[in-house]
Design a protein around this nucleic acid. Structure first.
Lengths: 220, 220
DNA sequence: GGGGGAATTATACAAGTGTATAATTATACG
DNA sequence: CGTATAATTATACACTTGTATAATTCCCCC
């Protein structure tokens, strides 16, 4: 090892990690990253081979980093529904805290960026996968209706996270008068607002008890 | 008018309109559009000046087109909540029918595409604007809680539309086994599934009656 | 029927991208 | 002390993008 590494690969990943929440994957230019890291462009080919491989490890690292901040609560003595409720609250606050990054990744995924989709599919078990058993437990306990899991996940995820999108877009593009902005923050991003949405979502689901006709099965 | 127009501008708009749901605005290349229209690239500069202006009229036209398919129901004799419910059902089915296009536009907007955001802001009154009065009427009638409007809109919009995103992404990227795919369609995209989500969302909101503490006002 | 001029084409340009490679640097080791 | 060699730089290439302009086509109208 005639010349010790100055860990340029790590510098590149760190620079890209900084840029990611504001640019997203698709608009992330390698020259921009290299310049932001104070390093030469050629290092991408040397250390990672191509952009796709670079993005792959970048996304993998990023998921590891933010998922480490997602606390996994478990209260064996609580009912399945209450277990789900606290888990959803932790997940909702976590999503709020990383909303810029997550929104960029979501935009990239919706735009068809294959690397981002793969990254989500690979890490989704650590996010959604922890919720599904709790949902199914609540269903088994008769605390949630026996509706199809995608319908269940979509309903809950949407009711919790869509206000984040609305609030973020509204404030980023100045679609709300300045004096109301702080009120918007409180009404959408606060712990209480998140908790309220989760309570409303779960109560809404319970309104569909007893089991509705919409299941995962094709109608006969 | 020495040489009559062969309406190349309309051909370009039509070609772009066809490509839009599969490519989105950002990935829409002018050469691709021109080639798809069987027309020369230079016509963009001649007829529209630049890409932004072209996208502007394209998006404006597109909104006009799909919004014409959005039926505006009004039943003066029904309660505010029932009025909102039927309006939401019409809106939900409309969103489902145009989900590819709307998801691309949403991805573009979330990615920061200014033209798309402007287009949404300009046309949002014809979509959300028709819902807000009904929501506020239901609030005034005590049928919905007095929570902040962004929270209300986000909650309802998310619970209705997020399952579309989940279902679309899952099927587009083959994340669900083929035999379950038809069941997914029924469970998420059917009229009944939409209606069920709306019922659950409204019931969930009603669970927050009497008025909760989360309002648009900054806490004192 | 041949100018005139708008509509359309062909083509070039500058800027940006990812990729690749030769040249240079800098250090551990003989 | 000098050399082998991994790490880094400088630079060029091929491609795509939007933009611009000169050249050509084609039809109305005098």
């Amino acid at each position: 090892m005639p010349r010790p590494s100055s860990h340029v690969d790590e510098k590149l990943l760190a620079a890209a990690r900084e840029l990611l929440p504001t640019t997203g994957c698709h608009k992330l230019s390698l020259r921009q990253v290299a310049s932001h890291a104070g390093v030469n462009l050629g290092m991408f080919h040397y250390h990672f081979g191509n952009k796709e491989a670079f993005l792959e490890t970048l996304i993998s690292r990023t998921y590891d980093e933010i998922l480490a901040r997602l606390e996994h609560t478990s209260q064996p003595d609580a009912s399945p529904l209450e277990n789900l409720r606290t888990a959803l609250n932790a997940l909702g606050r976590w999503a709020r805290d990383h909303r810029e990054l997550l929104m960029r990744l979501a935009a990239d995924a919706m735009a068809g960026e294959q690397v981002v989709v793969n990254g989500f599919v690979k890490n989704q078990p650590r996010i959604i996968g922890t919720m599904v058993p709790r949902m199914m437990a609540a269903q088994a306990a008769g605390q949630l209706p026996a509706i199809a899991v995608p319908q269940l996940i979509g309903f809950i995820a949407g009711s919790i996270t869509m206000p984040f999108v609305v609030g973020t877009v509204m404030s980023k593009f100045d679609l709300v008068p300045a004096p109301l902005l702080e009120g918007l923050e409180n009404a959408v991003f606060s712990d209480e607002a998140i908790s309220q949405r989760i309570d409303m979502a779960l109560a809404g689901l319970q309104s569909a008890l007893p089991p509705a006709a919409i299941t995962n099965q094709k109608p006969t």
